[in-house]
Amino acid sequence: MSAKPRIGLVGSQGSYGRWLRRFFEQRMGLPVLGRDPCGEVALSERQLLETVDVLVFCAPIRQTPAVIRHYVEQATGIERGQLWLDITSIKAAPVAAMLHSQAEVVGLHPMSAAPKSATLRGRAMVVCEARLERWRPWLEAFLAASEADCVRADAEQHDRVMALVQGMVHATHMAQGAVLRELAPEVGDLDGIRPFSSVGYELDVAVTRRILAGNAAIYQDIQFENPYVAPMLERLTAHLDTLRDLVRRGDEAARDQLREQLLDQSREYVGQPSVAEGSYAFERLGYLLADLREPRFISVFLPLDQPGSLRSLLSVFEQRGINLDSIHSSRSAEGELLFRIGVSREGDAAALQDAISAIEAECIGRVVEAAGGVGLTR
């Protein structure tokens, strides 16, 4: 096993294929070769197999088992001594297909879309070890470099859990999107609803819009390719049917039954400490949304990732007597780490404009957005 194994990516032009290429090359310093019908076909399947040490399948979910079986047929034993991985949201079928090879086999599922950041820090990744011996030290080094929060499971357990974590969540929000499409026009469309928004509505709509913004094929495959999703949907629709029937009845007995079946029993199952923790987490998200709706703010990108950079930024406001209401870090759509600083509404606009100029003139950072009586002068 080479200290610098050559990585092969099957599906190298997809979002995770592109991210993995950057990760392996830039984060781990490893050579990467790829093959993808959408633009990277210089190497045949056989040539890729003959060249690499680690083969990663990052093809579309429903195609992955067939793609793997094709590579098994092409390999005819030359994969002996290799490590085969897959990056998909379903694990049982891809892992079973890889086990027909003579390679060592591990299924992986990063619990997010390909990130804008360099690593998977703050995100979970499910690791399904199926056949692993010589490659274990390298795999552990790879997982450590990814900075993901790794959870170990077998492939069947993974798929059962994903029916709830992904299948149920996606299903309910796809249904919510359809209901909004049908009923929102009667009350002023989405813009008409927005002034009435609660924290719960805002969070649900954010998830729905995230799904609508994503790759539709992924959400289709998560529903259709996981055998545990259909039984989950039966349970989900049964409870919704019960809720509908109880609301239609509308009597006191129906109200009591709703509370008992859909609230009290579930509260008892979850447990009071967990219920309290979740309620507090919801409140925190509410405060965050309130901060993000503040009309007077600036967003700043700090190019120097070093101790003292944030202090230098904050000192600009302190020197001008500007009171800050909030500060949050997040990433732009391009992946840049931004600090969003909410500014007191009573503050002097001229002082804030001067602060914006100073941030860039003193090379502290780049102001990318400003609102609420201030603007960018460039």
Rank of each mutant, 00 (worst) to 15 (best):
60 P>W: 01
200 G>L: 06
257 Q>C: 12
105 V>P: 09
348 D>V: 00
224 F>Y: 13
243 L>Y: 14
86 D>W: 07
364 I>Y: 08
322 I>V: 13
126 V>N: 10
356 I>R: 00
162 M>H: 12
81 G>E: 03
277 E>P: 00
313 L>S: 00
32 V>Q: 10
151 V>E: 04
85 L>W: 12
202 E>T: 08
44 S>I: 00
189 D>F: 08
74 Q>I: 08
170 H>P: 09
162 M>W: 02
261 Q>N: 07
182 E>M: 05
6 R>G: 13
339 F>S: 03
3 A>N: 03
357 S>W: 04
175 A>S: 06
210 R>S: 06
121 R>H: 12
242 T>I: 01
63 Q>F: 12
170 H>D: 10
135 W>L: 06
47 Q>S: 11
79 E>S: 13
116 K>R: 14
318 E>H: 05
268 E>N: 09
190 L>F: 13
267 R>P: 06
302 L>M: 08
71 Y>S: 14
110 P>C: 00
270 V>N: 10
372 G>N: 03
167 G>N: 05
263 L>Q: 15
250 G>W: 14
213 A>E: 06
300 V>N: 03
254 A>D: 13
100 H>K: 10
279 S>M: 14
188 G>T: 01
299 S>P: 01
163 A>F: 15
269 Y>R: 15
167 G>L: 05
20 L>E: 10
305 D>R: 08
102 Q>T: 12
372 G>H: 11
73 E>G: 15
190 L>H: 09
10 V>N: 14
128 C>G: 05
68 I>L: 08
34 G>C: 04
165 V>C: 15
243 L>F: 14
29 G>L: 04
363 C>N: 14
186 E>L: 12
88 T>R: 03
179 V>A: 12
164 L>A: 15
99 L>R: 11
17 G>T: 09
216 A>E: 02
156 E>W: 12
252 E>G: 11
296 R>G: 02
297 F>T: 01
366 R>M: 07
314 L>A: 08
28 M>E: 09
147 E>A: 11
89 S>L: 06
107 G>V: 05
77 G>L: 01
362 E>K: 12
308 G>M: 02
65 P>K: 00
229 V>M: 10
196 F>R: 01
96 A>F: 06
116 K>C: 10
33 L>H: 15
318 E>A: 07
195 P>L: 01
26 Q>C: 08
352 L>I: 11
321 G>P: 02
341 I>A: 02
311 R>H: 09
36 D>K: 09
107 G>K: 06
141 A>I: 00
188 G>V: 01
226 N>D: 11
181 R>E: 11
326 S>W: 02
166 Q>D: 10
246 L>A: 10
306 Q>G: 00
329 S>H: 09
262 L>G: 13
334 E>M: 00
177 G>A: 11
50 E>Q: 14
19 W>R: 11
91 K>V: 12
127 V>K: 03
154 D>C: 09
43 L>F: 15
119 T>P: 09
300 V>Q: 01
312 S>W: 01
177 G>P: 10
200 G>P: 05
195 P>M: 04
160 R>L: 14
257 Q>S: 13
104 E>W: 07
87 I>T: 10
292 L>W: 15
282 F>G: 04
333 A>F: 00
241 D>E: 09
36 D>W: 13
61 I>E: 05
109 H>G: 04
180 L>Y: 12
71 Y>K: 09
192 G>A: 04
298 I>C: 08
23 F>A: 11
215 N>H: 03
310 L>A: 06
181 R>Y: 11
231 P>H: 00
102 Q>F: 08
